[in-house]
Design a binder for these strands. Structure first.
Length: 429
RNA sequence: GUGGCCGUAGUUCAACGGUAGAGCCCCAGAUUGUGAUUCUGGUUGUUGCGGGUUCGAGUCCCGUCGGUCACCCCA
């Protein structure tokens, strides 16, 4: 029998990776709460029609889909926005506007895995529904910026690339290009920096435009363009406009975006976009068959590219390492030198844990040397030694290499007191 | 979906077409007066899988699965 491996593009999370994941989730969650967002969650499995409705039939080639025993055509969600649109429109009258919701959960896309792309990934989604003002867009961009800064990624390492689909609509109207050519056109713009000029020229000519027209227009679409005025004023007031760069080539694929669009990019490593989002004012109406017409905007950040960026950015790497250490270490390791004292040691373990102190110990008789080594391996701050001196117990500070003795009756209080002191030890810099 | 590179011990990697090895990890023991050292010993492989060429294949060829990178796509 061959060993059964993980499904292509899916991942195991061993404790070390799981700790990274938790750190990322915790950071997302804390920033979202700071912005007054409420957490929600939808089902991982949806009727395939939900995704067809939003994106059309051709998208189903990248869905993990199957038919259930009950003959239901279902798919693992490739994104969360359709579920959000259903949830928000179904009960929109129950919620005061604007609705500010966030979500963290796995999504699945049947694509070729490569750098920064897996078939299973986790997205952080933040959306604001029921408010069409640029203040909403600004709030989302500010949050995206703060998420990056919270991870220790500075303006040297990332930027927000901002655009607005309206400016392209204006451009197309100016040249009398009909709406049917809009998707084709946006796709050309999306690739304009990567494709060869001759190719782009040819494609543009096909819909009645020239590369020169587009280039001229792009040069004029800077931060002084009226489409960005309100956003610029808002983000300048917050003191974070310097993170933003206008980039007219940002159009966000063929999706449902109607106005502001933006992506978070790293500036040094040529990674894929870390996050992306924008305004999608028509989606709720589409998903509710016109019953609920609610403006909306949001963004999504994936865990895969983000993790790559954190590992490549020194400041972020340091924060990550500290968080991992804090998550994996324990407060104290109970060393049983004299097996006759094990019942007393177990009683102490129980009492210390009840007080919220993180404790580990050896399950069976082991030489003191082994036990101290285990304490080292677990990155314990203290060793609590149960030996012949009982009921006196020795507390050793493993970093400072100092020690004190305390009657077992006062052990919990003494350990709490010691833990409250700042840790002395080699700096993790 | 297309193409490049790669699959050898738990892990990181060696091995000219000629008997599959090392470091680390892990486990046990010794020493270190109740800790970071040192020493000794030990487990582990149908060389991803299946075919082919050859006297002989980890090595060459084909297929397949997986990994990785790029293209396509990126909700």
């Amino acid at each position: 029998m061959e060993p059964i491996q993980t499904v292509k593009g899916f991942r195991d999370f061993f404790p070390e990776e799981c700790a990274v994941r938790n750190y990322i989730f915790d950071t997302w969650r804390s920033v979202a709460r700071r912005y007054g967002f409420m957490e929600y969650e939808g089902p991982v499995l949806e009727n395939t029609d939900l995704f067809r409705k939003k994106s059309g039939d051709e998208i189903t080639s990248q869905l993990f889909c199957f038919t259930t025993q009950g003959k239901d055509d279902v798919s693992l969600r490739p994104e969360v926005t359709p579920s959000l649109a259903r949830m928000a429109t179904a009960r929109q009258r129950d919620f005061k506007k604007p609705i500010k919701w966030f979500q963290i959960g796995s999504c699945f896309r049947y694509e070729a895995p490569q750098a920064g792309r897996t078939r299973e990934f986790v997205q952080f989604n933040a959306d604001i529904l029921g408010d069409a003002s640029p203040a909403t867009d600004a709030e989302l961009i500010a949050m995206a910026i703060d998420v990056m800064r919270e991870f220790g990624v500075s303006s040297e390492d990332f930027e927000i690339r901002l655009s607005n689909r309206e400016i392209w609509n204006g451009f197309l109207a100016q040249f009398n290009i009909t709406a049917e050519h809009t998707p084709t056109f946006l796709q050309i713009i999306d690739k304009i920096e990567r494709a060869r000029s001759e190719e782009t020229e040819k494609k543009l000519n096909g819909i009645g435009l020239t590369l020169a027209d587009v280039r001229t227009f792009m040069a004029s679409a800077d931060e002084n363009h009226p489409a960005f005025a309100a956003l610029r004023e808002n983000l300048t007031a917050r003191g974070i406009w310097q993170h933003v760069r206008i980039d007219a080539t940002i159009v966000r694929g063929l999706a449902y975006y109607t106005g502001t669009v933006f992506e978070v990019f790293d500036r040094k490593h040529g990674l894929r976009a870390v996050a992306g989002g924008g305004r999608y004012d028509k989606l709720c109406s589409l998903m509710s068959d016109g019953k609920v017409d609610m403006p909306a905007a949001g963004f999504a950040m994936g865990d895969v590219v983000l993790k790559l960026l954190l590992e490549k950015t020194p400041g972020a790497q340091m924060k990550l390492t500290c968080a991992l250490l804090a998550a994996s270490s324990i407060d104290a390791y109970v060393v049983v030198v004299d097996e006759a004292q094990r019942p007393h040691a177990l009683a102490a373990v129980q009492a210390l844990r009840a007080a919220g102190i993180r404790i580990d110990y050896s399950f069976g008789a082991q030489k003191a040397g082994k036990q101290f080594q285990a304490a080292e391996d677990r990155k314990a701050r203290f060793a609590i030694v149960f030996g012949a001196e009982y009921p006196e117990v020795v507390i050793k500070n493993l970093l400072a290499r100092s020690q004190s003795s305390v009657p077992v009756t006062g052990l919990v209080e003494e350990v709490q007191r010691l833990l409250a002191e700042p840790a002395i030890g080699p700096l993790i810099a």
